[in-house]
């Protein structure tokens, strides 16, 4: 059965979303964008950011490296990469501790 996400402090979760946004800007070389320009629930791919599947691969690698998690690959990864909020939930769920 699915393990429910561990309850974390809301401030900690905000920090996680913020670091994911900064990671997106840096790793995907979004030079004309700041972390604050990315909305928590806006679609990451196929939306306004103009990101494609190559960016998804890069982001997955960077998230795994930065947060020490192992994300699902291929189609199974799709829900986790829907938005910054979804990615933060997935990272929080997978993160040790």
């Amino acid at each position: 059965m699915l393990r429910s996400a561990p309850v974390r402090h809301p401030v900690e979760h905000e920090d996680l979303k913020r670091s994911i946004k900064q990671l997106i800007v840096d790793e995907l070389d979004l030079r004309d964008l700041g972390a604050d320009d990315i909305e928590d629930d806006a679609p990451l791919f196929g939306g306004g950011l103009g990101l494609d599947s190559l960016d998804a691969l890069q982001l997955a690698m960077a998230v795994e490296e930065r947060f020490g998690v192992r994300l699902p690959e291929g189609e199974a990864a799709r829900p986790a990469f829907a938005s910054v909020a979804a990615l933060a939930r997935e990272v929080a769920r997978m993160r040790p501790g």
């Binding site: 995907l28 190559l54 960016d55 691969l57 890069q58 690698m61 795994e64 490296e65």
Partner: peptide, 13 residues
């Protein structure tokens, strides 16, 4: 140094 899993897909091409 970090392992093949951390090869950058976006930099490679």
């Amino acid at each position: 140094q970090r392992g093949p899993r951390f090869a950058s897909p976006a930099d490679f091409p």
